[in-house]
């Protein structure tokens, strides 16, 4: 129960930080105080009208951003802030995270589908083609991380890194996991849902408060994802001197910055090529990661 405020504090800080990092990375200098720029942007969107398209699937159009954000919260609630301090310290933590990823694909697809407009529709379908195999990758690397912990709970995975972080022990894990993070938070080289070649893809038709909600949900998913990555590969709350939640926040922030940088500085290849690369190059790499983790974990 006490962890719920922590979850939302981390989400708020993460959203603000990544919005700021995004602005900073784009190399634009804004005359009005940079620190408040995300808030000004939010205020502008709030003052705009939310346009409806012709006969949209209204219910799903509204539900999909809400579901997206809710899934980010659900994913973050299995992440421990300190020993035994998580909203839901479930034994099946990484399975729940996997379910969140799967449902995120559904939410993004529905967002593209429900506008009844061509560009969002293509974005939604294309996202599914990339999201599904990318999800397989993340499952394999998470299972690899669960091997030394002998448990599927995120807390146990963090505890298993007391001697050595997983990022060193399983060097392939984090890069593969980051790719999935880019995919499910719709950015950079894995942004097949909301890409510029589709004029914003699933978000091409949304404006005003709706666009604000979608943006918040995307950044919330990015934050939840970074916190998960920090826990599974960077030792989560472990660290000297400072209390656990602070360490988790610091590591999350570091991963957020890495993700923002990657998202803006890698080219996106056409979807068919990416799909083939995921299955034929990256999936075998995740098998290799599993084998490395397996051999390393043998008693």
């Amino acid at each position: 129960m006490t962890a719920i405020p922590l979850v939302f504090a981390l989400l708020a800080a993460g959203i603000w930080l990544s919005a700021l990092a995004e602005r900073f990375a784009s190399g634009r200098r804004f005359p009005s105080g940079t620190v408040f720029a995300p808030l000004l942007q939010a205020a502008r969107l709030l003052s705009q009208q939310s346009v409806r398209t012709e006969h949209p699937d209204g219910l799903n159009w509204v539900l999909s951003p809400i579901a997206y954000l809710t899934l980010a919260v659900a994913g973050l609630s299995v992440v421990p802030f300190a020993p035994e301090l998580a909203v839901a310290p479930l034994d099946t933590g990484i399975v729940l995270w996997g379910a969140c990823e799967a449902l995120t694909i559904v939410a993004v697809f529905l967002h593209g589908w429900s506008a009844n407009s061509m560009l969002p529709l293509i974005g939604g379908y294309r996202f599914v083609a990339i999201g599904l195999p990318a999800m397989l990758l993340s499952m394999f690397v998470l299972i690899a991380a669960a091997l030394p912990a002998q448990s599927l709970s995120v807390g146990a995975i963090v505890e298993s890194q007391r001697s050595l972080w997983n990022v060193v022990r399983q060097p392939l894990g984090l890069p593969l996991f980051l790719l999935l993070g880019l995919a499910i938070s719709l950015r950079g080289p894995m942004d097949y849902g909301d890409a510029a070649d589709l004029s914003g893809g699933t978000a091409a038709e949304v404006s005003g408060p709706h666009r604000l909600a979608w943006g918040i949900a995307r950044l919330a998913m990015l934050t939840a994802f970074a916190a998960m990555g920090a826990s599974v590969f960077l030792g989560g709350y472990l660290g000297p001197w400072l209390p656990g939640p602070v360490w988790l926040a610091l590591k999350t922030a570091a991963l957020l910055l890495v993700l923002t940088w990657l998202g803006r500085n890698l080219a996106r290849m056409p979807a068919p090529r990416m799909m083939a690369a995921l299955w034929l190059v990256l999936l075998p790499l995740s098998f290799l990661d599993l084998v490395i983790a397996g051999v390393e974990a043998l008693p």
Partner: peptide
């Protein structure tokens, strides 16, 4: 049945996604 429950959510999400396609 924590594992079967979670796995059902997981499986049904992707399966219904593919079914919708």
């Amino acid at each position: 049945a924590p594992y079967i429950g979670m796995a059902t959510v997981f499986m049904m999400a992707v399966e219904m996604m593919v079914m919708a396609l």
